[in-house]
């Protein structure tokens, strides 16, 4: 094993003594000095998770969150030097972390916070202007087969829990959590509008509609799948959402069978 392999493995396992060959000028126990490096790594990575998942930390309290984050850090250290990407696997880890099972909605709140950060840093792509969108109205037969590119910041989170209400409550000084029933299913649309990340509480069927469009399905298919989810799906409201938030970046008109020209 190389010197750095030994050093690295001791860093992440405090039960191991520090590697041989380390010394201090005064002959003091090198373990205490080695602990500085252990501390830097573990604490800085826990801090990175706390910055990405602030509502999760509020939900379970700082002591529990940091202890849970420590288990994750040691089990799954980052693979990228870019720390803002760290923690993509944290929600799935929470799902399997039994001490957190009394807060069953915690992992989905983590998923929402992760999506928000991804939206925040997602690529800058100019939305289409109103004229481009109005233009497709000039050829209605090509509308059902219309496909579109949705802005890279956009994501849909469909949850069995009141993930939006729980998250939103923590954005206010007085969370008013007593009024939130965590077991109410909610769907959230995440997007970046200008420089601001937005969370929008949407109907489940609207979430299906958005998801299908993101997957490059046709407008007709997206509408049908949304209706299958909820017969009362409101297409006008869903389209208004797309337009108001300016999240369409390209349009690809097709025929009524969804075939591209």
């Amino acid at each position: 094993m190389s010197e750095q392999t030994v050093f690295a493995s001791a860093l992440l396992d405090p039960a191991q003594p520090c590697p041989d060959g380390l010394r201090a000028w005064n002959g003091s126990d090198p373990n205490q000095r080695f602990a500085v490096y252990r501390n830097n790594i573990v604490v800085s990575l826990i801090d990175a998770l706390a910055a990405t998942f602030p509502v999760c930390q509020q939900l379970v309290g700082e002591a529990f969150f940091r202890a849970m984050a420590r288990v994750f850090v040691v089990a799954q250290p980052p693979r990228s030097q870019i720390l803002t990407f760290y923690g993509r696997e944290f929600p799935a880890f929470i799902d399997t972390f039994s001490p957190a099972s009394s807060v069953p909605y915690l992992a989905d709140v983590a998923r929402l916070e992760r999506l928000r950060l991804d939206a925040f840093h997602s690529a800058d792509v100019e939305p289409l202007g109103t004229e481009d969108i109005t233009g497709v109205l000039s050829a209605p037969p090509r509308l059902p087969g219309l496909r579109m590119d949705i802005h890279p910041s956009v994501a849909v989170l469909q949850s069995r829990f009141a993930v939006f209400s729980l998250w939103a409550a923590h954005q206010q000084a007085d969370p008013g959590l007593a009024r939130v029933d965590p077991l109410q299913p909610e769907t959230v649309l995440v997007l970046r509008s200008g420089l601001e990340v937005q969370c929008i509480d949407i109907a489940e069927a609207t979430g299906v509609f958005m998801d299908r469009l993101i997957q490059k399905e046709t407008l007709s298919q997206a509408e049908q799948d949304a209706k299958a989810c909820e017969p009362g799906f409101d297409l006008v409201a869903a389209l208004t959402l797309l337009l108001r938030w300016q999240i369409i970046t390209s349009l690809y008109p097709g025929d009524e069978h969804g075939q591209l020209d």
Binding site: E3, Q4, T5, F7, A8, L11, L12, G21, Y37, N40, I41, S44, L45, A48, P77, P78, R79, S80, Q81, L83
Partner: peptide, 17 residues
Amino acid sequence: AWSSHGDFFLNDLLPLP
């Protein structure tokens, strides 16, 4: 300094001989 080892990024500026 070094900060990556194997597949992992250790997020500290580690010393070398």
